[in-house]
Design a protein around this nucleic acid. Structure first.
Lengths: 300, 300
DNA sequence: TCGCCTCAATAAGAAAATCTTATGCTAATC
DNA sequence: GATTAGCATAAGATTTTCTTATTGAGGCGA
C-alpha cells in the first residue's frame, strides 16, 4: 500500500528510534535506515537529527510527519469508502423490466428476494422493451426483463419462463361463454393486435397463417395495456399472456378463454451485459426468478 | 516520490487510456498495465472497465482517482511548505553574543550582512558567556560570539579577532595624562578587576605575575559594563579591550592609555555546534565577521 | 461479416529497488 | 575510557518493477 512508507516514517519519528520503528514494521534496522536516508536524499533535506540520542525530528521532519499522518488517514478513509461502495453495490441490483411483468408480481418477487437477501436492495424500473436493452447496455441496469429476449454480442440471455397465451374478450362478447376454443373459431373475428413491428405480432401472424385463418385487425398498439383497454371497450378480442389479464378478469372487465395452441407462448427472459460479473444481489435476484418460474410454471 | 504512482493512475483515468497514461509518465504501456492490475489486486476491486473503448472508470476507480488527486495535491503542499521552511531557515541566522560586542558594532555588522545577503535575517541575542554556549548547544543559536572561546566535544571554535587591551582610567586619574605606560607603572595601583573565575582575570593575573607587579584589587565584577562604571566613578583603573571603551571615551567619562603589553589581548571567537551544517545565512554572516576582523584589525 | 487498426494483456527476462546479514562507528552512560 | 545501545555502511540476495515482444480483443469501415 501507498502508505506503508509513511507508516514507517511515522513510527520512527514517533518512537524516536530507527530500530524500533523498523521492528514494528517487520523490517531490519538497516532497511529502515536506508529508507530514511533515501527519503532525505529525495527531499533534499534532513528529517531526523541522528547526532543526538535518542534521535530528534527536525522541523522539516515534523512537516513530513504531518504529511505522513495525513496520507495514512486518507488511505484509511479510502478503504472504508471502498468497502461501503462495495457493500452497497454488491448489495443492490438494478432491474429494468417491461411493463407486462406486473406490479403485483414484482412485489411478490421483491418479497421473496427480501427474505433471501435481507440486506440487499432492488431498484426496479419499468421501461419500454428497447429501453430495457439500452439500460442494460449502458450499465444502468444489471438485469433486464424482456419478452422474446434476443442475445447479441454484448447482450446475453437467460430464459426465464414461457407465458401461456389466452384469448382476451369482453365479458359480453359472443365467444365469452365458451370454455374451450380452437383456432378455427377465431376466423374473421375482430382482433386487437400488437404493432406489426413487434415480435409477438409476428408470432401471432405466423400462428394464424399456420392455422389457415385470418383475423380482422381493427386496431393495433405497441403495448398490452392499450390492447386490454380496447378489448374491455368491446373493440374486439385479442390473444395475450394470460397472467397479464388477471387483474381485469377479477374486475370483470375482461374474460380469458383458454384455447389449445401448442407452441403459442410468450417467452420472457433475463438479459444482461456479457462479461459483467453479477453482484451478490444480482445473483440472488436471479435465484429468486428461477425458483419463481418453477413455482408458478403456469398461472399462480 | 510517493505520488508518482498516483500520477500514473490519475493520468490513465483522466485520459481514459493506459498507453497514453504510460507514455506521459515515461514508462511502457506494459508497465502501466501491470501496475493497474497489481493495484486492483491489492485493493481487491476493479478500478477501470476495459471492456469498453475507450476504457471507463468504475465507481471504485472514481473514488481512487479522488484519492490520488488528493495525495498529489498534498505532496505539492508538502514541497512548498518544505521550500518555505528551507528558505526561511537558510535565510536566517541566530547569533548569541556576549555583551561586550557592542550594539554599535553589531549594527555595523548587520548592515554589511544586509548588503551581502539582502533576503536574509539576523537575530541577535545578548547573553552572558555561559548562556551563549548553552544557546549554541541547544540549537537556539547558530553562532555564538564569546571571548576566550573554548572548544569541546560538541562545540567548535572559529577564531575571530584578538582585541587590543588598554588601560582604562578616570580622566582625572594620576596616570591619565601619560601617553605611554609600561607594566611597571601599574605596580600597586588601585585596580577594578574581573571576577576571579573568569578567563580574562586569570590572563591579567598571569600578566602581572610575569611583569613582577602587584595591583590592588579594589572591586571585581563579572562584566565589562560594571568595570567601566567603577573606573568612571574613580574607584581605580582597569585593563579592558580598547574598543569596548570607545563610547565612554567619547563622552569624556573615561580615558584609555595605550601600553605596551605583547600577548595581552582578548581573543574573541565564534562558537558553533560541531557537525551542524551552516545555513546559507550563517555562512554569509561568518564571511561578514571575517572581513570585518581584517578591515578593523585594530580599532575602527 | 470480414479485415484492419488500435489498444490492453501477457510472457519472459533484464534492470532496479529494497531488504538482510554482518560489521563498523558513535553517542550516551557509568 | 570502557561499555552498551543504536545508527550507518558494505555486500550480496531477494523482490519488485520495468522493457521488449507477442498475443488477444474491441471498434470501425468496406
Amino acid at each position: 500500500m501507498i502508505s506503508d512508507d509513511c507508516k514507517l516514517f511515522r513510527d520512527i519519528a514517533q518512537l524516536r528510534s530507527v530500530s524500533r520503528g523498523a521492528s514494528i514494521n517487520n523490517i531490519s534496522q538497516s532497511a529502515a535506515s536506508q529508507y530514511i536516508q533515501e527519503l532525505e536524499r529525495k527531499l533534499d533535506t534532513e528529517l531526523l537529527d541522528r547526532s543526538t540520542r535518542p534521535l530528534t525530528v527536525t522541523p522539516d521532519g515534523k512537516l513530513y510527519l504531518e504529511f505522513c499522518r495525513d496520507i495514512i488517514r486518507r488511505e484509511e478513509d479510502l478503504f472504508s469508502a471502498l468497502d461501503q461502495l462495495r457493500g452497497s453495490i454488491q448489495g443492490s441490483v438494478r432491474v429494468a423490466s417491461i411493463y407486462s411483468v406486473g406490479l403485483s408480481e414484482m412485489a411478490y418477487l421483491r418479497e421473496k428476494f427480501a427474505v433471501l437477501c435481507p440486506d440487499c436492495q432492488v431498484h426496479v424500473e419499468y421501461l419500454r422493451p428497447e429501453k430495457v436493452y439500452e439500460a442494460v447496455l449502458a450499465d444502468q441496469a444489471d438485469l433486464g426483463l424482456v419478452s422474446y429476449p434476443e442475445s447479441s454480442r454484448d447482450i446475453a440471455v437467460i430464459p426465464w419462463r414461457d407465458e401461456q397465451m389466452a384469448i382476451a374478450a369482453h365479458p359480453e362478447h359472443a365467444l365469452a361463454g365458451r370454455t374451450q376454443l380452437s383456432a378455427a373459431d377465431l376466423d374473421q373475428v375482430d382482433f386487437v393486435a400488437f404493432d406489426d413491428d413487434l415480435t409477438i405480432r409476428k408470432e401471432l401472424d405466423r400462428f394464424f397463417r399456420e392455422q389457415g385463418i385470418t383475423v380482422n385487425v381493427v386496431m393495433q398498439f405497441d403495448n398490452i395495456q392499450m390492447i386490454k383497454e380496447a378489448v374491455a371497450h368491446g373493440s374486439g378480442i385479442s390473444i395475450l399472456p394470460e397472467r397479464t389479464m388477471l387483474l381485469e378478469i377479477e374486475q370483470g372487465r375482461l374474460v380469458s378463454i383458454p384455447f389449445h395452441a401448442p407452441g403459442l407462448v410468450r417467452p420472457v427472459g433475463v438479459v444482461h451485459r456479457r462479461k459483467k460479473r453479477f453482484s451478490r444481489a444480482a445473483q440472488q435476484f436471479l435465484t429468486v426468478l428461477e425458483s419463481h418460474s418453477l413455482e408458478f410454471a403456469l398461472i399462480p
